[in-house]
Amino acid sequence: MRLRRATEADGRLLLAWRNDPETRRWSHTTNEIALEDHLNWLRGVLASPARELFVAETGDGTPAGTVRFDRLDDTTWEVSITVAPQCRGRGLARRILAAGERELRDRGGGGTVLASVHEDNAASVALFRAAGYAEVRQPDSPTGRFRRLAKELEDG
């Protein structure tokens, strides 16, 4: 699994993955996103020093998913991962997440990484637990039906 920085040229591909019904099912925002809105969001992400967005590719260069890290404060990042619909069921999520964590560490992004996972998404909960994330109890959580899991990363 190799990661590369996302570019504006990835916009339509990332939108197709984002608007996939299974992806939307587990997202905080479940409605479809319009192309122009998505491209504006993507430009903002790419321009932000507080966000890291990577496209994961298999050994033959096939795009397989994304991993994104959003800086919440000086020591905390939130992770978001998407596996391309055509690549699901192959165990790639764990490899994408691990590659993303390595990349973040290599860029000096140590600290706490948080994942927000829909409480009914057993596969994602299992993914993050297997990767060393532990549940964070949050009374009156603004995430509603979402669980928060956290992991400490050391600087690279």
Rank of each mutant, 00 (worst) to 15 (best):
R68A: 13
P63W: 05
G59F: 07
P49F: 03
G65C: 00
F69V: 06
A64E: 02
F54V: 02
R71D: 03
E57H: 01
V67A: 00
A64D: 07
R51F: 01
L39V: 11
E52N: 08
L46S: 12
T62D: 13
L53R: 10
E52D: 10
F54C: 11
A50T: 10
E52Y: 10
V45G: 07
D73M: 04
R51C: 09
A47E: 15
L42P: 06
R68T: 12
R68I: 00
A50M: 06
L53N: 01
L72I: 15
G59V: 13
A47R: 14
F54S: 08
N40K: 12
L42S: 05
G44L: 14
A56Y: 02
L42A: 06
L46R: 10
D73G: 04
L39M: 14
D60E: 15
E57G: 02
T66D: 00
R43G: 14
D70M: 08
G65H: 01
G44D: 09
G44M: 09
F54E: 01
A64S: 14
L46V: 12
T58A: 14
S48Q: 05
R51D: 11
A50D: 14
P49T: 01
G44N: 12
V45F: 03
F54P: 00
V67G: 02
T62I: 13
R51Q: 15
E52L: 13
L72R: 14
F69P: 00
P63L: 11
A64N: 09
V55E: 10
G61Q: 01
D70C: 06
P49R: 08
E57T: 12
L42R: 05
A64T: 07
L53D: 03
L39S: 07
V55R: 02
G59N: 14
R51I: 11
E52Q: 13
L53P: 00
T66A: 07
T62K: 11
L42F: 08
L39P: 04
V55M: 03
V55W: 04
V45C: 11
T66N: 08
A56P: 02
D60T: 14
R51V: 12
W41S: 07
V55P: 04
A50N: 13
L72D: 01
L39F: 10
A56R: 03
G44H: 13
T66L: 05
T58Y: 00
D73H: 08
V45Q: 15
T66I: 14
P63V: 10
R68N: 09
A47D: 15
G65R: 00
T66E: 12
W41G: 10
A50V: 06
R43V: 04
E57K: 04
E52M: 08
R68F: 02
G65L: 00
R68P: 06
L39N: 06
R68D: 05
D70R: 13
T62Y: 03
G65N: 04
L53I: 11
L39K: 05
P63E: 09
D60A: 13
V55G: 01
